[in-house]
Design a protein around this nucleic acid. Structure first.
Lengths: 349, 349
DNA sequence: CTGAAAGCGCTTACAG
DNA sequence: CTGAAAGCGCTTACAG
């Protein structure tokens, strides 16, 4: 049996196709009696309403917003911060009747969601500037908002004041008396060497701003931190190995780029018999749900992941209505908990 | 300036619209030279490829798979088990070139993603049988797979062998010597009363099967457990209050329907000075990432969330190819960790 | 290797 | 309140 469409119902009832369309989409355009008759016929024929694909083409609107994440869906979901962001985005979009589609980077050459999926706009989250997905998205000229990413063009941007929070974290360690401090980051290939401006030049935007925050405060106090980094964008094997190497000659404190990285440092330190914070102070970044739960609870830089997601969605929604919202830089602030303290006292000599 | 379409490029190059279409979608259908010329013109005119909405209508395929979750996006993301499931689904779909769209339940009457979004199929995860989204989805007659849900019709189903794992959990407590045992569940309105068959009748499918597993083992040993439940589908305020009431006269052991519920019980028990497991043994369900991390590590029933997501996606993908996979029941098994032990010895009298 | 024809299912002004 | 016309942007056989 042929597919049931508007026309099928129209023929059945003896009206035109657009009257049936109106019955579903513009109830005020026809009499209640006729509408009831049409809806009744539709139910009888098993027609559940206008086909969304046809409607999307005719209306020029799909009701779908894409989200491009740094990595594959698998990695993005592994990260509580990314999940919290997605949650807020989805909830905000839902309020306006939009749904969220996850745009993964595909290894297949024949399909590319960023290019091939029908959507009304997109949010780019924490993406490398030259990622293939990002350039593909730009070519489509869709309304876009970028979050903690390099700008694609002149789209509205949501940023984090990374430097403020990391500066506070560095100041906190100085106050406690630390002088031998290491920073642990991604996107920089560095194996426990003195931090210098060249490192900053190679870092991603987000990491670059955090390096700035740490470095400006520390060097202002005459402290040159050590830098441990991976060329990758996650806590990967390279980073784990370099953290291990760093702990062969441990600093008294570590500033990590994320809570997960901080937990990796703490885990490794403990395996070697180092106590946190007595032998080693560790500061995270994000204030993920985990941070307060672990023991000792993590001193970390808080960012409001929920506000970030809400702001991204709200800004994109405004853009779809033709309103341009200003760029937004969200605050960060240090939360002192139990993973930091005074440096260990060493025997002189 | 008018929108750039296939026709724009065709006019520019002096070929027909379908030749331009072929240049993008079926490269083997035209000469390399002509194709290069077309792609070049497209780049010059800022045309990034065939519009997905037009393509979706013509092809009858969108590349999008919907996922319906129990609750709003906000709640679903809050749960590590649901997030793990989504992650596996998204990764498996991505391998086949499909993207995942989150179908939230909307409070707005004018939009309903389950009805209005173009998609090729859907996965229904842990949904109540009469949820509005579910019935709307059925009406669309899309290929569907349900996961831990009541059947919609004759769609392929992925289930969990809830009774096996919960039976093992109950047996474990009996072995340890427990006789005063409470079960903590959702979807049943019960305030610390003796479990009887009527409770089971009111429970959701998943909870019902877990009640069966617990009850069959316990009653076989002459133990009638107490039941504490909320009419809701989450750890909500009602459940929290009833757990508190239960702890006024604590059992020696608790079987919880999820790890999060188990952690709630442990948290409240500690606030009252009860030690886990010395004063109270607690068993969770799920073996979420949290279970092994908390202290004491949680004795729980493991389910393979990743396998569940992969199976759901694989089964739906097969359905889209016209292959019907058999229903699948995934195993569960008890993981004994530190939150269970022997019951406290009480002074006779 | 290329194109004319037909069609995917719907909606938007507009006229009556 | 209802319908004829035009169109949304694309693809699928099919014929040459």
């Amino acid at each position: 049996m042929a597919r049931v469409t508007l026309q099928t119902i129209a023929d059945e009832v003896g009206v035109s196709r657009m009257t049936v369309s109106n019955a579903f989409s513009r109830p005020d355009q026809l009499s209640a009696a006729l509408r009831a008759q049409i809806l009744d016929a539709a139910a009888r024929l098993g027609y559940s309403g206008p086909d969304p694909a046809g409607r999307a083409l005719a209306r020029g609107r799909t009701g779908v917003i894409g989200v491009v994440l740094t990595n594959s869906p698998r990695d993005a979901f592994a990260d509580e911060v990314a999940v919290g962001f997605l949650r807020a985005v989805a909830a905000t979009l839902a309020d306006e009747g939009y749904s969220l589609v996850l745009l993964h980077s595909s290894e297949r050459s024949d399909v590319d969601p960023v290019r091939d999926i029908a959507m009304d706009g997109a949010i780019v989250y924490s993406c490398a500037p030259r990622a293939r997905e990002v350039t593909a998205l730009r070519e489509r000229r869709l309304p876009v908002v970028t979050v903690e990413s390099a700008p694609l063009g002149d789209e509205p941007r949501i940023l984090l004041d990374d430097a403020a929070g990391s500066g506070q974290a560095a100041a906190h360690l100085l106050e406690q008396g630390h002088r031998d401090i290491a920073v642990v980051v991604t996107s920089v290939d560095a194996a426990d060497e003195p931090l210098d401006p060249a490192h900053r030049g190679r870092a991603s935007g987000t990491i670059g701003r955090r390096l700035d925050g740490w470095a400006s405060v520390l060097t202002g106090a005459g402290v040159v931190p050590r830098i441990v980094g991976t060329p990758g964008f996650d806590v990967d094997d390279v980073l784990r190995e370099r953290i291990a190497a760093m702990l062969d000659d441990p600093p008294t404190a570590v500033l990590a780029f994320s809570d997960l990285a901080a937990l990796e440092v703490i885990g490794q330190a403990r395996d070697r018999g180092l106590r946190v914070p007595e032998d080693l102070s560790v500061v995270g970044f994000d204030d993920s749900p985990l941070a307060a739960r672990v023991s000792p609870p993590l001193t970390t830089v808080r960012q409001d992941v929920d506000a970030k997601g809400t702001a991204a969605a709200t800004t994109l929604l405004a853009l779809l209505r033709g309103e341009r919202r200003p760029d937004l830089t969200l605050p960060t602030s240090l939360v002192v908990r139990g993973s930091t303290g005074r440096p260990p006292v060493v025997a002189a000599g």
